[in-house]
Design a protein around this nucleic acid. Structure first.
Lengths: 230, 230
DNA sequence: TCGTGTGAAGAATTTCACAGCA
DNA sequence: TGCTGTGAAATTCTTCACACGA
């Protein structure tokens, strides 16, 4: 009763999930190299910097075209532009920030979004005490205005920084407003309505993953016997 | 020249990386159920809530013992305690927050850490303008005091919220201070010194992943042909 | 009957290894 | 010679399917 897809390989030609997850890593490193003025890089050295094998790098990039020059490697500017275009950061994205509590305000001030082409164009909250307050150049709007503002401003994505209990309701409103992508910071798996793409970031969960790694020297180097003491 | 491990299966008995990544998801949901007072849950329904197959749930949990009761399912409190113990959140962790800029301050105020047993016990920065300022009950310390404070307070993990250019240097100091786990918010792959466990969170990167998903209805439903023009 | 634990089968992903181009 | 693109092999991860316990 838990079945999703008819068992069978995904349609051939589709990009593996694992590849997609690495795409942004490649792009991030290429942007850095481009800024330093470097012109070309081989799959081997690109992989080295990211702890990915050279073959993996070539295969990943191969899904989107042939960017490499035998004997040379990849031209950095060219590959960067190609990846931007594949990922979608060759244009600007208009983002709604929903929830202006502690975390929301920090995300608003975080430079890393704008730098990659994500521009927060409106702030929303449902707390009357926050509605109408200013944050930088912007005024916090009531969440009931979400749909209206989405049309006005052409909002395309939403950053959800609301308390966990409010998350599902907020996600529904976002979807109803016509936005089809959510970056969710609430520590729940959203009951994502159809047609809504969701990427979740649970900060506490990441810290847990770290704690786990530190607890046991799992996975890492050192095939030293890791028998726990009896 | 890029070889890491002698090809060969990992030592048997090791926990698959993929399983580890799901452990915190299980725990998160169990904590929620426990709070609601529910007593037991089957692998099927636990999986349903997290979009994981029932067999996967059973296999994942099976790596750490036999927690299930045939015909019943899992006792929530019991399984929760077991997972806490496996992950390490059955005890408190003392955390250093390095970098009290915009993001750092928000992370300090974020409740999701403490709730899972991670207590920020000291704040550090290298900006003279910030050193000595107060944040809540705490005073920002110069980063040169990191080692000293680590001994005094028994710091075990560090949250790194410094600018990208400062990240590697800061990571080195954290390692030298005797801390062996970093939650890194700078958008670089840290040149992690040996013995240092790193989990990275790149917020811009997550938003990119979302943009990519929205751009193409990749992976999701709709096996519509996505052939690019030749 | 419901639901776990688990070997075996099946998919997905990664690595190998090598032809071929500059 | 240096390095890409890519089938084939190896490995890792997921699902199937069923014996068995409550």
């Amino acid at each position: 009763m838990n079945k999703e897809k008819p068992p069978g390989s995904q349609h051939p030609g589709a990009t593996p999930k694992a590849t997609v997850a690495r795409l942004s890593l490649y792009l991030r490193h290429l942007e850095m190299l481009a800024q330093k003025g470097q012109e070309t890089i081989s799959s081997n050295r690109l992989g080295e910097a990211l702890e990915i094998s050279d073959a993996q790098v070539r295969k990943d990039l191969g899904h989107f075209g042939q960017f490499g020059y035998p004997g040379i490697g990849y031209r950095i500017g060219e590959l960067r532009d190609a990846l931007r275009s594949v990922i979608g950061t060759n244009r600007e994205w208009s983002v709604a920030l929903v929830g202006v509590g502690n975390l929301g305000r920090a995300l608003f001030g975080y430079g890393g979004f704008r730098q990659r082409g994500f521009v927060v164009r409106a702030l929303f909250d449902n707390d009357p005490a926050k509605i109408g307050t200013r944050l930088g150049e912007m005024t916090v709007r009531p969440i009931d205005r979400l749909a209206e503002s989405t049309r006005e401003l052409g909002l395309q994505l939403a950053i959800l920084a609301v308390p966990v209990d409010a998350a599902d309701e907020a996600a529904r409103r976002v979807r109803d407003a016509g936005i089809c992508g959510i970056l969710n910071f609430a520590p729940v798996r959203l009951a994502a309505p159809k047609g809504l793409h969701v990427v979740s970031v649970d900060l506490g969960l990441e810290l847990e993953q770290l704690a786990f790694q530190v607890n046991r020297r799992t996975s890492d180097e050192a095939p030293e016997r890791t028998e726990e003491a009896p």
